[in-house]
Design a protein around this nucleic acid. Structure first.
Length: 558
DNA sequence: GCTCTAATAT
DNA sequence: AATATTAGAG
């Protein structure tokens, strides 16, 4: 059976109605067509998009007045004669209520204005196909959360994260993404054990969590409570919910993503922090499995540096997407600490006003909240690593993983040697001759006797040119604009990974044909559901380089 | 008292 | 297996 058939009850949730407003008939039709076609190449039982094309903004308002509850998203052009898109947006807000509006314009400079006026998103013309999943996704997200929560200003409350979130609304259980119970898995002899344990072996820290008691689970209050079942339904992490979760992580940054922030970003009324925490735990386990798989895949080597690498725990070996960060203590005074790249260049996406969404999409959103720290972490600040359990911490040569620059794979070894190993030159006395810092850091340091994470000149970063030669780097930084006068960024970094070959985002699963498995190394038989098995963890072995990072965000965690 | 997270229960 | 809950620690 196909995936769609396995989710028969979802179709009603996956129906959105979009109103397209553009007084240019051609453009109006084009956008509408794209949306319609997008829904067609999906399985129609999973996705259904209805598009209303309206060239007259005034008439669009009239439509909205009558169809308010049926419209999930409005896409409006900016430049229109009778009223521009933002005026339309304002009138919608005043006369109808808060509905999600995406502003489209050929003038990319309208982006800031649009977002600051409360548009939910901005898209430069022409719209690209890669934007469509995100459009759909946004509409669905807001539909799920309830249109009345869409308030831009008034309904917001601030919590202690400084995050502005819409007021939660009540959702019916049917609306909520929950399951009552799960009898599916009732049986099976419990195959206990098989995992865990290793953590406790690695470090003593006795007593910590070893012999502790806990209350029996679930009993909750008032015992049987026969009158009030009042069982909290389990959250079902559907693909849509999971994708939102992944978006949050992508937005916040892997290393800074904690349940509370994720929850704030997701803004799903029925989710609790605990729900997110639980899911996050699962996600981290997934990441480790992926990492382990890859590290195990690329370990053969006898050269000195690889030997050195192999002597490390695999958690601290360089890996695609999670580069090494190391506190260096040299003879310099004060000690020079740096990572391969200044933090200013890393994780920029979470600090910008606008936010590029997803892979390959031009859709930008107003940053939902100040989720990121105002300041980049100080260089000697230990950052959270998903791959490195806390027990591996080592104060002498502290390693931590930084999202973005490490590599794996054959070419990665060379890259590591050429770029990163030199960073350790003054650090690894066994190795003569490696005294300069990579990535132009030496130059940077020379110009900044007291490096305090000032933004270095871009041309001083040799990595800049390396980027163009390096296919493996997960980030596309080609559109970094640097204002040399101000010493500051002028544009925004594209927090983009290469567009994935297949779109794994959101609930609308592609109906992948059962790919004939030609890989002789994979001997496991295909499982009964090829549509899903295409995404399974085992297939990650086939991923290469840049796909790796995508896999972290786009593949499921099974 | 709140948050995060590993461990453990369901 | 997937999610919830709890304990420990900060």
């Amino acid at each position: 059976m196909t995936f769609a058939e396995s989710l028969p009850n979802k179709s009603s949730d996956l129906r959105i109605n979009v109103l397209v407003v553009d007084d240019d008939p051609f453009s109006c039709g084009a956008i509408s067509q794209m949306l319609v076609q997008y829904s067609r190449y999906r399985d129609p039982s999973v996705i259904e998009i209805t598009v209303i094309a309206e060239e007259d903004p005034t008439k669009a308002l009239a439509i909205l007045k009558h169809q308010r509850n049926n419209i999930d998203l409005i896409i409006t052009d900016y430049n229109m004669l009778s009223m521009n898109g933002l005026q339309l947006k304002r009138r919608i807000t005043e006369e109808i209520g808060n509905l999600p509006v995406i502003v489209v314009s050929a003038d990319a400079n309208k982006e800031q204005e649009s977002l600051s006026c409360g548009a939910m998103g901005f898209l430069p013309k022409p719209i690209h196909a890669t934007d469509l999943p995100k459009i759909y996704q946004l509409a669905l997200t807001y539909k799920r959360n309830g249109k009345s929560t869409l308030g831009t200003e008034p309904n917001h409350k601030a919590n202690d994260t400084g995050v502005s979130v819409p007021q939660q609304i009540k959702m019916l259980p049917e609306q909520a993404n929950v399951l009552k119970t799960r009898k599916k898995y009732s049986s099976k002899a419990d195959s206990r054990s098989l995992n865990s344990t290793n953590g406790s072996c690695l470090i003593s820290t006795d007593g910590s969590r070893k012999n502790r008691k806990r209350k029996p689970n679930g009993g909750s209050e008032d015992g049987a409570s026969p009158s009030q079942p009042s069982k909290k339904p389990k959250v079902s992490w559907t693909d849509g919910l999971n994708d939102l979760f992944l978006q949050a992580i992508q937005h916040i940054g892997l290393d800074k993503a904690v349940p509370k922030k994720i929850l704030a970003f997701m803004n799903v009324s029925y989710l609790t922090r605990e729900n997110v925490a639980s899911h996050l735990q699962k996600y981290r386990i997934f990441l480790r499995k992926v990492a382990e798989l890859y590290f195990n895949q690329y370990t053969p080597s006898t050269s000195w540096y690889d030997t050195s690498l192999n002597n490390r725990s695999f958690y601290s070996k360089p890996g695609q997407g999670f580069g090494q960060s190391r506190l260096l203590s040299t003879t310099r005074e004060p000690p020079v600490r740096f990572n391969q790249m200044p933090y200013n260049y890393m994780n920029r996406s979470s600090t910008y006003e606008t936010h590029h969404v997803g892979s390959g999409s031009n859709l930008t959103l107003p940053i939902q909240s100040n989720l990121s720290l105002a300041n980049q972490p100080s260089q000697n600040e230990e950052r959270r690593s998903f791959f490195e359990p806390p027990v591996m911490a080592n104060k002498i040569g502290q390693t931590s993983q930084v999202h973005g620059f490490g590599q794996l794979g054959p070419s990665a070894i060379n890259n590591f040697k050429n770029n990163m190993m030199s960073s350790f030159g003054s650090f690894t006395p066994n190795q003569p001759g490696l005294v300069h810092f990579s990535y132009g850091m030496q130059s940077f340091l020379n110009n900044n006797p007291e490096p305090n994470l000032e933004l270095p000149q871009l041309e001083d970063l040799s990595v800049h040119s390396d980027f163009h030669k390096t296919d493996e780097l997960p980030y596309n930084i080609s559109n970094i604009q640097f204002d040399h006068n101000k010493g500051n960024y002028n544009g925004e970094i594209a927090n983009t990974f290469a567009a994935p070959a297949t779109n794994h985002t959101f609930a609308a699963l592609e109906m992948n044909p059962p790919s004939s498995n030609t890989n002789p190394n994979q001997n496991q038989e295909h499982d009964a559901n090829p549509d899903i098995s295409d995404w399974l963890f085992s297939d990650l072995q086939d991923l290469v380089d840049e796909d790796f990072m995508n896999s972290l965000f786009n593949n499921d965690m099974n």
